[in-house]
Structure formats: structure tokens, C-alpha cells
Design a protein around this nucleic acid. Structure first.
Lengths: 330, 330
DNA sequence: CTCTCAACTGTAAACGATTACAGTTAGTCG
DNA sequence: CGACTAACTGTAATCGTTTACAGTTGAGAG
């Protein structure tokens, strides 16, 4: 009852291994050969060994998706988008998540040289020249989701979250808010940095109408982190609008505010980011900037498949536009 | 600049390929040999080809996690638990999600014979004799999360969700609720079926105190599905308590109720299932039965690693106890 | 009936690692 | 200093496929 090999099938069908291989791979064969082989395959329940095949053809039929933390809903959506596209292809999805340091990303990128994936979709939360260098040296196609370091020739799906913040700020301004805060996550991450930059730019472009602005940095992008950060920044309570680093943080902020009897949106407008399902489930429903993570995952996966099929085309950069979804909180 | 092979390293170091392999795998070697090899590896940036290794040693260093839908928060938590455990091992995590039919699960199980995973953690949403049969025939260790078909000798992590429902019913009864409904997901799924069974049992054991009970079946486990199902079951509004198939459904139900001006918990107590982060973020905060998905994922991963290390031990069944987390909604 | 040639088939050599087995070292002891 | 032995090293076979190349087949033309 050992797992049948291609030679067992060949013997059973009375043909050569080459013929079996050819039938398996859909190359032309005499009808009689084909039926003999197919019968033998069915009888033995033969499944080709993927390692042997991978060794020979230098393809693993796997695609690796690599991001910081599977706990983050935005990455989950991204995974869903990638998964949906790959589901209809021959590729399997290898998840390389939960790296918590630059060193780990580097480690992971190094190990891509072992050839266990035919392509990589990566959304690095940290920027680092060594990471850039490693990505550049990778011999498999790479799609980068997020801010691509200049000079790195890879396909790139980008969403300008600073535009998203600008949408939020303009919206708040139109609603007559004048004292706008940003409750951000850590600034040593790409998303954190870009949110702060975008916020400053947006404020600057409206500076006549804005009376006060402030950035509060939480220790992570969680609801608890947001709650704690607010508790430690009492002056922010005097503001009339708060943009939060993501929907979870917005929910954490709303929890804090309701405990302090600061009403949303009357006393304080709240805008989240990511437009996750959460936004429509909490009360008041949450205005949120949709960064279209699932769609970006889909696009990235399609770009990758396209690039695998067509390795020489020039790298593409696809820019996705954030959308502001206005609900009751602002 | 072709990828260096073990022979290149051997040549460079002036030793045989066998020695290189031995140094790579930590077997004893003369100090001089070891340093020569290590230097050559570093100079060439050698990474062993995983397919060649897999072919020879018949191990892929991959573990497959297979479940219905990556969109479901419970599975996401599970993935997180599995991921955390595997992160500290040599195994990579292969995700096989999004099967939408029995046929697809079968297809997937079949392909496990290709040897691309050393172990499988599966949480099948449907039951089917053919699935059972295929799992039994698999030559790699399997851990099943969920209800194991009798007679199937695999490691199993089980949570008795009917106990969870019982906790919820008892709790509601203690709070004086007498007309209790269950807003369930589809009954052709394992979770759906078990929730209904548990509900009926729990009601039966309290039947003196319960005046009315009803099961409403939504078309899926989503918040939208729950919302729609409630809208189509007006009589349920007369009930004074509603247990929901998961937290998302509970949120959907609460949305519907608030639109109908039925106040929670005064007019209607709500209990969710899964105790996701959502439960503490919505208002009123949601009482929920924690099915400990993340913990189950962790346990499953550990069971699998243990079984890989120790293939002959008897199958274990680990039963996890659901916990009722009481919050404001009940 | 033989020849031609296109279409198919089989043989055997890869792919890049691991490892049994035999051969080589070099250290120790008398 | 030589013999013995334990420890290391090298050669070559092997894992299960794919595929180049050469060999075979058979249908159709003459």
C-alpha cells in the first residue's frame, strides 16, 4: 500500500513512464495510450509527488503571502482577496505571517531562496534598506502592497492613505469641525508614518479654518491601545473631531468617550480607517476611510499571476483610491 | 548568478557534497571542515533547495490548515492560534481555505496525497461519509477540529457548543427570561446543526420555566443574514431573549432591533457566540459564549506537532469547555 | 506492396539534495 | 614507532518526476 509512483502506473498500463507523464500533463497521445494510462491512474489512485515535480520543473505551484500580523483585520481582508483569486488558479497559498521585527522579515525573505514559492506578495510594515535590497535580489516575481521604496522595480499596489486622511479632514471641516486630532498607531511602521504625514499635509492645506490639531500616538493599532492612549491625553477631549488609525482604534476611542460622557458625534466626530464590517455594527455607525484591503489583495494576486505568465513586462504600479464612507459618527 | 547548489558549495569549500550536507544538518564534522563549509555557504549565499530535500527525505516542512472560509472571524482566530505555534517550529503554514462545497473538500483531501504537507489540521463545516473515509486513508497525521465522526481514529479538538448554548439558556433563565429564541445559521453545516441540537436540549432541560422557544434559520452566519432573517420572522419580536449563531449575527440582530425600537437588554436580551473582539466594542456590550477558537487552533497545532514526533501514540481527544462571558446585553 | 513522414513512444539523463557504505585520517596506547 | 580504533570523509545510489533525443509505428501515397 505504498503510495503509487509514476512507474507503478506505467507498469500497470503497460506503457513507459514518459507516456504517463505526458498524459498527466495533457500532451498528445494515442487515444488507446491515453485511456490505458487514465485507467491505471484511477485504479491506483495515483497522485504525482509534488516535490519531485517541483525539483524537476523548478516550480512549486505555491504563492507566499507575507504580512505583519494575522490579527489585523485589514490583513485578513487582504488574505481573503488573494485567496479568492488563487482559488481559481493552480496555486496554493502559503501564509507567512506574524513577523514582529525587521530581522524576521529579513530572515523570511532570505529563505525565499529555497524555492518553495513561485511568487511573493508582501506587505511590509517596516521600511529598511536591507529589506529593499533583498526584495530586489529575489529571483521570483514579487508584488509589493504598500509604499514601494524608490528604485525598486517590482509590481506595486499602492493606496495613498494620506489622500484618505485628506478626505477625512475635508469632510470634518465641511461639517464645521475646527479642532481635529489624529489618534495614530506607532510611527515606526509604514502605515503609522503615512497617516501622520497625510494628516499634517491635510491640515496644512486647510490651515485657515483649523484652529487646533494634535497627533496622539498609541502603542499599537488595537482598540485597547487607542483607549489607553486617549486616557493619557486629556487635552484631546477638548477637540471636536478625531481621526483614528483604524476602525478598531475608533471603536476603542468611542468606548473611552462614552465612559467620559462625551457624545459622538455631537461633542466629538469620529472617523475610522479601513471601513471594516465593524464600522456598520457599532453605534453610532462609524464614518470610515475605506482602504480597500480586499480589493488590493485581489489586484496584487492578479498582478502576480500575470507577471508569472509574462516575466518580462515592465513593473506596474496600480494606485487604488481610498473612499470615504460617511456614517453617523461624523 | 544561478542559484548555488550544494555541489557549488562543496567545490568552493574543497570538500564533498556529503560533508556540506552534514554540516548543514548539524552532524559532527571536523572543526576545519565545518568552518570551510560555513565560509563557503556564507560566501555563496547558499540556501538548500526545498524540493530536492523534500523529495529525498519525504518531508515538506509544511502543515496545511484547511477550513471553510477565511472571512469567518472564528477561523481567523483559529489560524492565528495555529500560526503562533508553528511560528516557533520549522513548519510553514499552508492555508487551504474557501471550500464552498463537499466536493471541494474532497478534492482538497485527495490532493493531500501529493505530499505537500506533513500534517493537516482540518475543520470541516460539512459532514459526509466520503470525507471521513478520505481522512482515514490519509497517510499524514491529521488533527480534526470540530465534531469527529465516530470510528475515525484521529486527534481531535472538540468544543461542545451545545454545552455553550446550555450555558446561555441557563443564564437567560436566571435572568428571568422565558421566551427564548435561537437565531441560527444554516442547518446543513456542522456548527449550525450542533447549535440547534444544543438549543433543543437546553430548552428541554428547563422546560418548566420556558414558555416559548423558536429557532430562526438565517441563510448564512453573517450580520446581514441575521438582519434579514429577523425581518422575516416578526413573531420573534415578542420574545424576550435571543441567542445568536455568532457575534456577527448578534450585531446584525441588534441593528435590526434598534431600528424597531426594541431595546436591548430591557425588551430583549441578546447572547452571541464566539466572544470575538466585536462583543466588547458594540453597545450594549455583548454577552457571548466563548468557543475559544484561537486556543483550539493552538491546541490542534501542538497535537499535530506531537503526533508528527510520535506517530504511534493513541489518538487523543481534547475537549475544550466553552465559557460564558456576561456583558451588558443580557 | 513499399516508401515516406508525421506522430507517437521509450530510454535514459537530468533536477539537488540525503545517506549507506567503504575508505581515509589521526589520535592513543603499548 | 607501529597497530588499533574511533571519528570523520567521499563515492555513488537514490528519491519521483520531466523531457531531449532517438527509435518505432502506421496511415496514405505512389
Amino acid at each position: 500500500m505504498a503510495t503509487p509512483t509514476i512507474s507503478a502506473v506505467a507498469e500497470r498500463a503497460g506503457v513507459s513512464v514518459a507516456s504517463v507523464s505526458r498524459v498527466m500533463n495533457g500532451m498528445s497521445a494515442r487515444p488507446k495510450t491515453e485511456s490505458l494510462v487514465k485507467a491505471a491512474i484511477a485504479e491506483l489512485g495515483y497522485q504525482p509527488n509534488s516535490a519531485a515535480r517541483a525539483l524537476k520543473v523548478r516550480k512549486s505551484d505555491q504563492i507566499c503571502l507575507s504580512f505583519a500580523d494575522i490579527g489585523n483585520p485589514a490583513y485578513v481582508s487582504m488574505t481573503r482577496g488573494v485567496g479568492r483569486v488563487l482559488h481559481d488558479s493552480k496555486y496554493r497559498l502559503l501564509l507567512a505571517s506574524s513577523f514582529s521585527s525587521v530581522g524576521e522579515i529579513i530572515e523570511q525573505l532570505r529563505s525565499m531562496g529555497r524555492g518553495y514559492a513561485d511568487g511573493l506578495i508582501i506587505s511590509p510594515i517596516y521600511s529598511d534598506p536591507e529589506i529593499t535590497e533583498l526584495i530586489a535580489q529575489l529571483k521570483i516575481p514579487v508584488v509589493l502592497i504598500g509604499t514601494a521604496p524608490k528604485g525598486l522595480a517590482v509590481d506595486n499596489v499602492h493606496i495613498d492613505s494620506s489622500v484618505g486622511i485628506k478626505l477625512a479632514v475635508s469632510h470634518l471641516k465641511e461639517r464645521g469641525r475646527k479642532r481635529i486630532g489624529l489618534l495614530n498607531g506607532p510611527l515606526n511602521t509604514n502605515p503609522g508614518r503615512r497617516r501622520s504625514e497625510g494628516f499634517k499635509k491635510a491640515i496644512a492645506s486647510h490651515k485657515l479654518e483649523i484652529e487646533a490639531e494634535q497627533i496622539v500616538v498609541a502603542e499599537d493599532f488595537s482598540s485597547q491601545g487607542a483607549y489607553t492612549a486617549l486616557a493619557q491625553s486629556p487635552q484631546i477631549e477638548k477637540f471636536d473631531a478625531l481621526i483614528c488609525g483604524n476602525d478598531l482604534m475608533a471603536a476603542g476611542a468611542m468606548k473611552y468617550l462614552s465612559e467620559k460622557n462625551i457624545s459622538v458625534p455631537q461633542d466629538m466626530a469620529i472617523v475610522g480607517i479601513d471601513n471594516t464590517e465593524l464600522a456598520s455594527l457599532i453605534r453610532p455607525t462609524l464614518t470610515s476611510v475605506d482602504l480597500l484591503a480586499e480589493k488590493r489583495g485581489e489586484i496584487a494576486a492578479r498582478l502576480l499571476l500575470d507577471r508569472i505568465a509574462n516575466p518580462d513586462r515592465a513593473p506596474k504600479k496600480i494606485v487604488v483610491k481610498p473612499e470615504l464612507i460617511v456614517r453617523a459618527s461624523s
